[in-house]
């Protein structure tokens, strides 16, 4: 079950904690992976960690529309074959309460977390529709559903991603292309490692499953939605949050 032999997958934001786990999981199931991110040295190291086989990287700064537009083409070039799977995982946060949120904080988050995934979807759909096959998985967040004080920009982008994915799922369904969302809750990554223990305990107490999430928890959900076995699932959002929000 859930094998991806012969499939080509592009994972954006692959140098981050979650992206790294997604790429490793898809690769372990047989996929050829193209990692994209901004930090070339990290990407190179990851390709080496994956054994150098069936693994490639492309650097891209997704805050630049032109780079987002070009990424699918570049990934297909390095992999030498068209993409079967796109995982839009890249994203960033600029947290602050709305009263203090600058236009720039808003625009940057909406651009990288919503507009650039759209650009990538648009680019990859062209070929997927023609080939009558494909999987797109967009990584959103529980806060797109629940909201979160200090994250009006991020929550708006992630909620937008859900609406976008449902629309694309309707457009692409007749061609066997699925578009789904994975919405992680609180995941332990280098970014969250720095939080004080007291705060982590407080977060954990709100999670029925009694622990913070691991990047691999998210990666497994992504793998399912990328698989042949998920061929009748589209436009859906899979929440991976330890039960913190049951939606």
């Amino acid at each position: 079950m859930f094998r991806l032999d012969g499939k080509i997958a592009l994972v954006t934001g692959a140098s981050g904690g979650i992206g790294r786990a997604i790429a490793a999981t898809l690769h372990a199931q047989g996929a050829t992976v193209v990692l994209s991110g901004t930090r070339e040295a990290v990407l190179q190291e990851q390709v080496a960690e994956l054994g150098g086989e069936r693994a490639f990287y492309v650097t891209a700064n997704l805050s630049e529309p032109a780079e987002a537009d070009a990424l699918v083409g570049k990934a297909e070039e390095v992999a030498g074959a068209p993409l079967d799977i796109l995982v839009n995982n890249a994203g960033l946060t600029r947290d602050t309460l709305a009263l203090r949120m600058k236009d720039q904080d808003w625009d940057q988050v909406l651009n990288v977390d919503l507009s650039s995934p759209f650009r990538l979807c648009r680019a990859v759909l062209k070929g997927m529709l023609r080939r009558r096959a494909g999987r797109i998985v967009n990584i959103a967040s529980v806060v797109g559903t629940t909201g979160n004080a200090g994250q009006a920009n991020y929550a708006a982008a992630k909620a937008g991603m859900v609406g976008m994915s449902k629309s694309l799922a309707q457009e692409a369904g007749s061609r066997g292309v699925t578009v789904n969302v994975v919405a992680p809750g609180f995941i332990v990554t280098p970014m969250t490692d720095v939080l004080p223990d007291a705060q982590k305990e407080k977060l954990t107490s709100a999670i029925p499953l009694g622990r913070l999430g691991k990047p691999e928890d998210v990666a497994s959900a992504v793998l399912y939605l990328c698989s042949e076995e998920a061929g009748w699932v589209t436009g859906s959002t899979l929440h991976v949050n330890g039960g913190m929000a049951m939606v």
């Binding site: 062209k126 529709l129 023609r130 457009e171 007749s174 061609r175």
Partner: peptide, 11 residues
């Protein structure tokens, strides 16, 4: 053709 085909044809 369906609506998606017509869009693809135009493209």
């Amino acid at each position: 053709a369906d609506s998606l085909d017509t869009v693809e044809l135009v493209m």
